[in-house]
Write a protein that binds this DNA or RNA. Structure first.
Length: 596
DNA sequence: TTAGGGTTAG
């Protein structure tokens, strides 16, 4: 039966409609239901089936829409991710029908989804006026809304403290509020208080508490809660075990995660996604193996799966493999997902095809700050610094607010393109216009920016003015610049600071020795080399790789690659000729350092 | 006849 036909059958203007007479008694279970109840039931069925517009048509044809019908419609819009329609319906009902606690809990959820504090606060005021703040449903929904819409937990906390008799949802909502905001310690504090007040553990509060442990990297608490999982028999609950797996992947180790994964009797797509994300960086081949296995077991990969699988391919950097995975994305109609598209931009750039990155980026209908950043980093790593900087300006023009990571990208692009003054302007804008507090990474970028351009006194001044102790990455950038510009005095000063922070790092001694060599200080050079030999530790080799027929061949300076080494040196000679053609005199000293 | 909390990415 089509929805229109059904609506006609239900409509009081049609003869087959059940009439509502004053003699009808509703107390008996066999008594006919009033029309509004029947209509609301049909509306609910439509909403459950996802036929939101049909539900609305029927709703609009109802002659007497009571609070239940309105609440069902508002709740339907909210659960079908149409929060603006839910809010509009809420406003429309107010002049005629008095909302109840069901209405408020649904509309507050809509405010949460819209991330709209003004609307949420208005709903709060109305709930107060109508006297529904005593409802635990309304109070919990209010807490949840404030946790999602505010920058801190103060308002959510105030609502929580006002609740006389808290239930398990109250506790879980507050713990989740802190944890999702990034305050895992706050979440765990509430969890501890919950235990002290002898509230019961359940799979909801346990899984969010594990997530809180993961967010603060607490192995001890994480393991402790994992043992609680067994004590309470939650090891068969999939969301709980998914949290446990994620905690092992991020905080403890992949082999432990693997063990728990193997012990799970039942798994869902999130289980597989968690493991794939866990392996994506450290063992991308294993991540791809899991991807194949999940499909063999009958699961359907989703956008989360592909985001991690595409990232794994980016780490392997085989373009052919990337094209295959992209085929899977397109087959499942997921190419419009923002997360997947962002991962594809990064993957293509890392596989060497910046043109494909550009195509994906340009085809995106919606872009977020990650999309712009991925494209900028792609341009930067392909030597197109000016394009990266231009993209930053375009991003700001399009109304996207830059975050700290975008500034890392634009500062790196400026640094590699020699746009020093522009880079300094971006640094100032970051601090004063966007109120982003620079961290070690940002200072490292600015030191690198100034250092590459030879403006080392300014770089040194900046380091001295830092409001916290510079770490080895900041000093490392400075040392690199001293080496490039052959400034021995400043360089050895920087090296001493790096060694104070991280003693025994071979790379620092190596950088220092080449600095001495570049300035003809052979005595100091010999002393450094002797020290290095005595340390017995080696600098981590910088590795290069090339894709040949879908296979990756990696090599380091001085590598013996059998018969292939001749090809490599031939290619290096050709490059050398090109470099000289471009009127550049290559510095071969650095090559010899690496060969030591 | 209408309402609630947890897990995966960038």
């Amino acid at each position: 039966m089509t929805s229109r036909k059904l609506i006609h059958n239900m409509n009081p203007r049609f003869p087959n409609f059940l009439p509502l007479s004053s003699s009808t008694h509703f107390s008996s279970p066999f008594a006919p239901k009033p029309p509004s109840v029947l209509a609301t039931n049909v509306i609910k069925s439509y909403l459950e089936a996802g036929l939101v517009n049909d539900a609305r048509i029927l709703f609009d044809e109802m002659p007497d829409r009571d609070v239940v019908a309105w609440s069902a419609m508002i709740s339907g819009y909210t659960s079908r991710n149409r929060p603006a329609d839910a809010w509009a319906a809420f406003r429309d009902m107010l002049p005629d029908v008095r909302p109840n606690e069901f209405t408020f809990s649904s509309v507050l959820k809509a405010c949460k989804i819209m991330n709209s504090l003004p609307r949420g606060a208005m709903a709060h005021a109305l709930a107060l006026r109508h006297g529904f703040l005593g409802s635990i449903y309304v109070a919990n929904a209010l807490m949840d809304m404030y946790a999602a819409c505010c920058d801190d937990m103060n308002r959510a906390r105030a609502v929580f403290e006002e609740i006389g008799v808290k239930n398990s949802v109250t506790w879980t909502t507050l713990i989740a509020g802190y944890t999702h905001m990034g305050d895992g310690h706050g979440g765990l504090d509430v969890f501890r208080r919950m235990l002290l007040e002898e509230a019961e553990l359940n799979p909801f509060n346990v899984s969010i508490a594990i997530r809180a442990c993961t967010s603060i990297g607490s192995q001890a608490f994480g393991k402790q809660i994992h043992s609680t999982v067994f004590k309470h028999g939650f090891e068969t609950n999939i969301p709980v075990m998914n949290s446990v797996l994620d905690m092992y992947c991020r905080c403890i180790g992949l082999s432990d995660a693997d063990q728990s994964f193997g012990e799970m009797v039942e798994r869902d797509i999130i289980t597989w996604n968690t493991m794939i994300a866990g392996y994506e960086k450290s063992d991308p081949y294993k991540a791809l193996d899991l991807y194949s296995r999940l499909m063999l077991e009958g699961h359907v990969p989703n956008c989360f799966t592909f985001t991690s699988v595409v990232a794994a391919v980016a780490n392997i950097a085989i373009l052919g493999l990337g094209e295959q995975v992209r085929g899977g994305v397109v087959r499942r109609g997921l190419e419009d997902d923002m997360g997947v598209a962002n991962a594809l931009i990064d993957m293509y750039a890392k596989c060497g095809s910046i043109v494909s990155s550009c195509k994906i980026f340009k085809a995106m209908r919606c872009k977020n700050v990650v999309s712009w950043t991925s494209m900028m980093i792609g341009y930067g790593s392909h030597g197109h610094g000016k394009e990266a900087v231009a993209l930053f300006n375009k991003m700001v023009e399009s109304g996207v607010r830059p975050d700290r990571i975008v500034f890392v990208a634009v500062l790196n692009a400026c640094s590699h393109t020699g746009l020093v003054d522009e880079g300094l302007e971006y640094f100032k804008a970051m601090v004063y216009r966007y109120n982003i507090t620079p961290d070690q990474e940002i200072y490292g970028c600015v030191v690198d920016l100034l250092g590459r351009a030879g403006r080392l006194p300014e770089a040194y001044k900046l380091i001295e003015a830092m409001p916290f102790m510079p770490d080895e990455s900041v000093w490392g950038a400075f040392l690199g610049a001293c080496k490039a510009h052959k400034l021995t005095e400043l360089g050895s000063k920087a090296a001493r600071r790096v060694l104070d922070l991280r003693p025994g790092v071979a790379g620092t001694y190596l950088a220092l020795s080449s600095l001495y060599a570049a300035n003809g200080k052979w005595g100091d050079f010999a002393r450094m080399r002797k020290l290095l030999k005595g340390m017995g530790s080696k600098k981590e080799a910088g590795m290069s790789w090339i894709e040949v027929k879908n296979q990756i061949c990696s090599f380091v300076a001085g590598d013996k690659m059998g018969s292939h080494i001749d090809w490599v040196y031939e290619a290096v000679d050709t490059l050398g000729l090109h470099i000289k053609d471009a009127q550049y005199n290559p510095d071969l000293q650095c090559l010899e350092d690496d060969l030591e």
